[in-house]
Design a protein around this nucleic acid. Structure first.
Length: 789
RNA sequence: GGGCGCGUAGCUCAGUUGGUUAGAGCAUCUGUCUUACAAACAGAGGGUCAGAGGUUCGAGUCCUCUCGCGCCCACCA
């Protein structure tokens, strides 16, 4: 054995084991290995995040603790890693970073930049994950824009199209004028904004004047109708009468609509195409009204805007209010705060425009999705509510087409003559219709020979909702694939339940009619030390690399273990420091153990064990049982507390002190029993710590326990089992806690007298009631008192 | 507007099905270099369990209301 260093130094130790794990392929998946498969549907992070912080560490470490536990429990773990790179976040990141205007750069040039950036991003992640010792199999990786994923994503589209779960339609959709693309309901975010409620007066042909209130006066040129409640006494007599709108002088008919709230504002609503979802619904109830296209995809007014043509929405709002005021058509303006929908990626107010898009049907299957949610095992259970509420409140089918560049292309051509949808053969996937032509030479419907490529790309979730299948198909053979999907575990954060989790369930349900994963483990957020969200803008974080450099990856992970599922966790440097101290303490106990015995000797039989040995073994068994249970339930924070308590407060503070007199004494049998007990207990302690602190435990395993178990790494060794040595023929130690109380009393006595605990005192009269016949000798020697009465 | 969660020591949090005197870590104070560890150890002080009411022999724990914080959802123009 090489010389054992006095201090544990993570900066030296950690790189060594990183290299070892990589070289030896410790975490590599072997389909032929024994054990039940435990497959993880690892979240593929958006690689556009160039600033990784404690929150990222926390959310990825959670799956890692469980995975390492499962691996030691004998499961054959499949833990791949993916990166989500396509889609809006990346495009926006690239646009911002290079300050480019997407319309002034070619599609291929733009994609090239995106690919370069995402490569950097994924390397960032990989570097940090490797530093942290995240035990993924780096030979099993994917990126959502690579060929493998494009193929599966396009296959998914074709399969659902054939199953009639996908359709194309021209209808009012949600639109982001900044990103210039259609978006889905899941991409919306409600934001509280200040606005003005403008009360506008209109003339009725009877000579009456009525007033309606709106936050969107600029849509006046697209006004299609005005409604009141049929039972509203104020307006009943005016229903059916013509109204002349100010400015446009357009005439419309006042209609009755039960959806109108008599109590809100003036009880009069005006509808425009399209002020919001309610306008679309109103249109469906009033077939006589015709939609007017006002806001164009670029966010500017169309020629239907008359003199406002070409203005942006907010400009037009200002101008129209001014003009209305001049025309004397405004009764009053009330500043209000109300929530408006914005595009969550860019914060731009969402517009509703009419456009032709692709949709995956959701609304017709709500009940089935709710049922799937019920089948899924949620950790914590309460997270299911977020899912249920989302599904229940769905208002739109899933719009999957995006008018963007950096995404998986639709595998679709349109017949130039009859618009028939032409799909490629599945064996040709992935295809890029912009660069390829379909195999068929003529349209099967009309015989025309010209095909136009579909230019849209998929919503990024169209692809990432397939991660369990993408992961599964990274393995070549069908027999293995079958075991990998559905996945055993989906770990993820709560804020993407309505997107990633929901969409994945949708896909799996439609494609294979089962759940995509059996268990969902939902994490909360990592917050800063004051409880604020960690963000680049606030700069309220220390880069994890810095923390790791100073305290070690184990210490960083130690903090992350403190998270309770579904709850936010504040970053706490003190916890990191405690983690660092724990590594030091572990190292010191290891050195102490090795001082007395070079080779690890575990308990072989219980013949010479003494009461203190039985006591610590019993405590160990209790700890193993509790820690195991907690890891099983994903409550690793509690598991950590239990291990800490046992290790610091029972093993280090008491047991080690209890056996010093035996280790330095003459009684060989007693010494042997003590060292075997210590070795056994400590071995199990480092095994229990292994999922949390893989580096220090590996170092101790390789330095001190080589030979105790033949596995190549502690992370492939077996999880501790209760040895129940204190049961059966073992001595009765139910009164051992009295002895501990007596020890406490001795310690207190010395402390209060200012005497070092290591100094022998002549005599002490104990107040604690304890069986001196049984424990007198032990108390004298362990407590260093010559005479006890 | 509806729903969920939280509020326990100066700080960060544990407190399982209601049951002796409410716990831990950090911080504070006192002592100790004890043949693993001063990055440690031994000890001490510190709490109207957000507030009010109720159920009960007994409430941090169950019920009702109030206040404060966080989050999710909701087309109110």
């Amino acid at each position: 054995m090489k010389e054992i260093s006095k201090h544990y130094n993570p900066q030296e130790v950690e790189p060594k084991w990183r290299e070892f794990w990589e070289k030896e392929g410790i975490y590599r998946f072997n389909p032929k290995a024994k054990g039940e498969i435990f497959s993880v549907d690892t979240p593929p992070p958006y690689v556009s995040a160039d600033h990784l912080h404690a929150g990222h560490v926390m959310s990825y470490a959670q799956a890692e603790f469980v995975v390492r536990f499962k691996r030691m429990r004998g499961f054959n773990v499949y833990y791949p890693m993916g990166f989500d790179d396509n889609g809006l976040p990346t495009e926006r990141f690239v646009e911002k970073k290079y300050k480019i205007n997407r319309s002034k750069i070619s599609r291929s040039e733009f994609i090239k930049l995106c690919l370069e950036e995402t490569k950097k991003g994924s390397e960032n992640y990989r570097k940090l994950w490797t530093l942290l010792g995240i035990s993924v199999d780096w030979t099993k990786t994917y990126s959502t824009i690579n060929k493998h994923c494009r193929r599966i994503s396009q296959w998914s589209f074709i399969d659902l199209y054939k199953k009639e779960k996908i359709y194309r339609a021209k209808k009012p959709i949600l639109w982001c004028t900044a990103c210039r693309t259609a978006i889905a309901q899941a991409d919306l975010e409600a934001e509280e904004k200040e606005s003005n409620l403008v009360y506008i007066k209109v003339k009725v042909e009877t000579g009456d004047e009525i007033v309606f209130a709106t936050t969107r006066p600029e849509l006046l040129p697209a006004c299609m109708g005005i409604s009141v409640h049929p039972n509203d006494k104020r307006y009943k007599k005016l229903i059916g009468k013509k109204i002349t709108l100010p400015l446009t002088k357009k005439k419309i008919t006042l209609t009755a609509d039960v959806a109108t709230d008599m109590k809100y504002g003036s009880g009069v609503v005006y509808y425009c195409s399209y002020g919001g979802g309610e306008c679309i619904e109103w249109l469906s109830r009033h077939p006589e009204a015709k939609a007017i296209e006002l806001v164009l995809p670029n966010g500017r007014f169309s020629k239907n805007g008359g003199s406002y043509e070409g203005m942006k929405v907010l400009e037009a709002r200002k101008k129209i209010v001014e003009d209305l005021q001049k025309a004397g058509a405004i009764e009053k303006i009330e500043p209000i705060k109300h929530s408006v929908y914005v595009h969550e990626r860019c914060g731009t107010d969402v517009e509703y425009i009419e456009s032709e898009q692709w949709f995956i049907k959701l609304l017709e299957s709500k009940k089935e999705f709710l049922k799937r949610g019920q089948e899924l095992k949620w950790f914590p259970k309460t997270m299911k509510r977020i899912y249920d509420e989302w599904v229940e409140n769905l208002k739109w089918d899933w719009c999957i087409s995006r008018q963007r560049y950096f995404g998986v292309p639709f595998p679709v051509w349109h017949c130039a003559k009859c618009s028939e949808v032409i799909l490629p053969d599945e064996k040709d996937l992935p295809v890029d219709p912009l660069e390829e032509q379909p195999r068929i030479k003529a349209c099967p419907k009309c015989g025309a020979k010209v095909f136009l490529p579909e230019k849209d790309v998929f919503d990024t979730w169209q692809t990432s909702s397939l991660t369990p299948i993408i992961s599964q198909k990274l393995m070549g053979d069908a027999a293995t694939q079958k075991k990998l999907y559905p996945s055993s575990l989906r770990p993820q954060a709560f804020e993407i339940i309505r997107t990633w989790l929901f969409y994945t369930i949708v896909k799996s349900h439609y494609h294979h009619n089962h759940l995509p994963f059996a268990n969902a483990m939902i994490s909360g957020h990592g917050l800063d030390e004051q409880g604020r969200k960690i963000s680049k803008r606030l700069g309220n974080y220390i880069p994890p690399e810095k923390i790791i450099e100073e305290y070690g990856a184990d210490a960083m992970r130690y903090w992350a273990t403190g998270a309770t599922l579904g709850q936010s966790l504040r970053f706490n440097i003190l916890e990191v420091k405690k983690g660092r101290r724990t590594t030091t303490k572990l190292w010191n106990v290891a050195r102490f153990m090795a001082m007395h015995e070079k080779k690890p000797k575990l308990i072989a039989n219980s013949d010479h064990l003494e009461r203190a040995d039985f006591w610590i073994l019993e405590e160990m068994d209790k700890t193993i049982a509790e820690v195991t249970k907690n890891f099983e339930n994903y409550t690793y924070a509690k598991a950590k507390d239990k291990i800490d308590d046992f290790f610091w407060s029972k093993l280090a503070d008491y047991y080690v002190e209890f056996i010093k007199y035996r280790l330095f004494g003459e009684d060989k049998k007693s010494k042997d029993a003590a060292i075997r007990t210590l070795t056994t207990v400590f071995f199990n302690v480092i095994k229990m710590y292994a999922p949390i602190m893989p580096f220090v435990t590996e170092e101790i395993f390789q330095t001190f326990f080589k030979g105790a178990e033949k596995s190549k790494s502690i992370h492939l060794s077996g999880w501790p089992e209760e040895i129940s040595a204190s049961g059966g023929k073992a001595a009765d130690i139910s009164d051992f806690k009295e002895a501990i109380k007596a020890i406490d009393e001795i310690r207190k006595f010395k402390t209060e007298k200012g005497i070092s605990l290591g100094i022998d005192i002549k005599s002490l009269k104990l107040k604690t009631k304890v069986n001196l016949k049984k424990y007198g000798d032990f108390l004298k020697k362990a407590g260093r008192v010559k005479k006890i009465t």
